[in-house]
Design a protein around this nucleic acid. Structure first.
Lengths: 335, 335
DNA sequence: GTGAAAGCGCTAACAG
DNA sequence: CTGTTAGCGCTTTCAC
């Protein structure tokens, strides 16, 4: 067993009495080598503890086998699961995840240079702060990018997204069983594309009926912001009939605040809906009515799409929209 | 602007009228280059869109600048945050995270070969399935490893961990305000080192008094397993006075099950404590009394330790134990 | 099927 | 301070 120096293909070749390129061939799948040579090489390789050096391979093949995944730490609470899914599914396609964090738009230039330096084969962006204008830079350098959970209107991007329009339609249909009059839309932050989209969809749908009274508040997707927004609202206004939250965390915050500090019963006095299908929002004390994102399928779509773009760089931009599932919880009053 | 071919340092050198090594020097921090050359190189480099190729650099310096981080998907719910912290703190030390998932012990051999292939500078293991016997393999190949949130008794490992002993002592002290007699210890899975440690500490502390009646159940750290375990227990036994859960998710599950299906009031009829300080466990409906892990400091310790081991491979194994903070929630009855 | 030889893009002595 | 010269460990023609 080697202890200090790394074993190279030359060492193995010498020991096995073959050429270095023979060793190389044995370790590259699908290359023709005689069974005899293969066995001999494999045996000495194992004995010497040889492993091909991926770095050297990258240098020559110009394929790093790595995909940059960009996350933010103020992330959507779903991302842990998304991330391990991404890693697993990319591993199945023989790619690794090189992780980058992006917490503010300012450091995006840096990030770009970093990613370029590492010669990644492609990029999956989970981070809200990854602005779609950045796409041009990547395109210029022929680095395929897939945006996860994003819907870019002008459609020059590869995106994978849950069907927000349909989902919010379903949620509003649920709410309307009670014929509410006063709605509050609790949006995510203004710098989040998804938050903006969900909010606008809700507002447009609600605008269709003149009878609806609709107000908007802005949180930051967090539990606490759900609480704070509701508390602030109730200082000057009566409780609305229904609150449409841009995600589940805020919905849970709203529910807790309503119950704890305002003696508002959910769902009897007020209905609340969320979005995402985050596990905690289904806990008995909340049972938020929400749209569950088809996480595994979304990730699969994103990975498939990226691989496709890596293998065939000329593929035109594509948006895949998957349908979420309505979870009928207990946060909407039933007649 | 280049469109197709990648720009190399030779291209820049030719264009700027200097040698290739001059270009190399400009892009390596801390090397002496005259201001004039530097400016000229930088200008043409920018003009041509040149970025040094990290892969080539890795090959020659034998430092990949990458750290393998091993996670599992059935992960501790804290890991999202841990992961982005790790990524951020490693980035500050000029290292990137190469992510690997490990979901079952069987694939660990594969994982090891993968990691070796990528020539990572070090490894941080967050995954419960990463068995400490594996350490020998890494040591043999001089790859430093730090185990996060793990306490390996025989101490031949670099570990970073929260002080479980102290934490559980504090939790039990809280519980004992009501002088409970019947305890239930709800442990995490038997194949988790941390779960085993937390369970044994609790059992040992409780054994000290002959008056205590203590039983043990095994969950899998999930919310649902908390519910299931309690339900199963209550079929044959009366409710205990106090339940000590190995993590917060199970504690929340226990609380929901008790309230919803058994009309047990928490904390009046039964006290529950958790461990970790997971955000959701502090939501008003639960307010679990727990120990909050000092996440940021733990990550910092792990990263510091790893960098230290990378720079100085001879450093002896070290265990760093940080103290968590007791969160007095509302899941323990007060007299 | 196999070996020889030429690099991939860069860093690191080493002279000048 | 700058340029020249060897490689890092591998893949990939190209003869044989």
């Amino acid at each position: 067993m080697n202890k200090d120096k790394k074993v190279t293909s030359y060492d193995v070749a010498r020991e096995a009495g073959v050429s270095q390129s023979a060793v190389s061939r044995v370790f590259r799948p699908g290359l023709s080598v005689s069974q005899k040579t293969r066995d001999k090489v494999m045996e000495t390789a194992n004995k010497m503890g040889y492993r091909p050096n991926a770095i050297a391979r990258m240098l020559i093949t110009k394929q790093s086998g790595m995909v940059a995944v960009i996350v933010s730490s103020r992330a959507n609470i779903n991302y842990p699961e998304v991330l391990s899914q991404v890693s697993k599914q990319l591993a199945a396609r023989n790619k690794r995840v090189l992780l980058f964090t992006l917490d503010d738009a300012e450091s995006a230039d840096d990030l770009f240079e970093q990613i370029r330096t590492f010669q990644v084969d492609g990029v999956i962006a989970l981070a809200a702060h990854f602005e779609s204008q950045r796409l041009a830079q990547f395109k210029q350098h022929n680095i395929p990018v897939v945006l996860y959970n994003r819907n870019v209107p002008d459609a020059m991007a590869n995106t994978v997204c849950c069907n927000h329009e349909l989902g919010i339609k379903q949620l509003i249909a649920e709410l309307q069983i009670n014929q509410p009059k006063n709605y509050l839309v609790l949006s995510g932050p203004k710098d989040s594309d998804v938050a903006n989209e969900r909010r606008e969809i809700a507002l447009n749908l609600l605008k269709k009926s003149d009878e609806n009274h609709v107000s908007v508040l802005y949180g930051d997707y967090s539990y606490q912001s759900g609480r704070d927004c509701l508390a602030k609202w109730l200082k000057k206004h009566p409780a609305p009939d229904a609150i449409i939250c841009s995600n589940d965390s805020m919905a849970v915050g709203v529910i807790d605040e309503a119950r704890e500090n305002h003696k508002i019963h959910i769902p009897n006095d007020m209905s609340v809906v969320g979005f995402d299908g985050y596990a905690s929002s289904s806990w008995s004390s909340y049972q938020v009515t929400t749209i569950k994102q088809p996480l595994e399928q979304l990730v699969k779509a994103a990975v498939d799409m990226l691989i496709e773009r890596i293998e065939n760089p000329e593929s035109p931009p594509e948006a895949r929209v998957l349908t979420g599932m309505l979870i009928k919880g207990n946060s909407v009053r039933r007649p």
